[in-house]
Design a binder for these strands. Structure first.
Length: 216
DNA sequence: AAGTGTTCCAACCGCATATGT
DNA sequence: TACATATGCGGTTGGAACACT
């Protein structure tokens, strides 16, 4: 016997949420709390499945969401956490107040990944890519070079000049061997083992990133 | 101005895990 | 213990917006 669907697929809306649906969801959660997602749509008068409601609330309607552009500090923290946790977006999001796993995942795939690639760093391993300039840099367990002087627009132009990359659309291979690291400024982040104060607590604490030794 | 290509992100899907009976 | 159900998570997709020719 196969697994039953998470919700009744018939008679449910899909696609973008309307303003009215948002208002209904917000009003219901403000009145009754999050509770049971499966029964929420019916109770709130929404033709959506519980999963969809949960996603909408967590990613876009929650009042404590920060929204807006990621700061360079947030970028650095994401890179650091990703180097340790991999694609555990929900755990990474847990360390960035006001940010959601989906938002961080998108930001990683659209901005950070390409930034690392343009700097000759493999975003999966956080190590220099073979043949790149970055490989010639001093080796460290995890090495992150950051061009602090170039903005996103500049980065965007450079990337466009060299073509697309194997990113969200997975269509093109990025010719990163043609792109050198910007020599203007490198911020090298070195990671060392965390100082675990409570061995029973396996979860990362915010202080876990304090071991970062930032050299400019 | 129009056609085509690319980027971005909201939302979906399926699997894993947690919880209840 | 086994099974059913609910929730959470991460990968993937669709399409609007934007850039380029």
């Amino acid at each position: 016997m196969g697994r039953s669907p998470c919700c009744e697929k018939a008679h449910t809306n899909k696609g973008a949420w309307t303003k009215e649906e948002d208002e209904r969801l917000i009003a219901y959660i403000q009145a009754y709390g999050e509770g049971c997602w499966r029964s929420l749509p019916k109770a709130a008068g929404l033709l959506r499945c519980g999963k969809s409601c949960r996603l909408r609330w967590i990613n876009y309607l929650r009042p404590d969401l920060k929204r807006g552009n990621f700061t360079s500090e947030e970028d650095d923290l994401i890179i650091t956490l990703h180097s340790r946790l991999g694609n555990k977006w929900s755990r990474i999001a847990g360390k960035l107040p006001g940010r959601t796993d989906n938002e961080i995942k998108n930001h990683w795939n659209t901005h950070i990944r390409r930034k690392l690639l343009s700097q000759g760093i493999d975003p999966s391993t956080h190590r220099p890519i073979n043949g790149s300039l970055a490989e010639k840099m001093p080796k460290s367990p995890i090495l992150i070079s950051r061009d602090a002087t170039s903005g996103d627009q500049q980065e965007e132009k450079k990337l466009k000049h060299f073509g697309s990359f194997e990113g969200n659309n997975r269509k093109n291979i990025f010719p990163f061997e043609e792109i050198g690291c910007n020599p203007k400024l490198n911020l090298e982040l070195q990671l060392s083992p965390p100082n675990i104060q409570n061995p029973h607590d396996q979860s990362l604490a915010v202080s876990d990133v304090d071991f970062l030794d930032l050299k400019i």
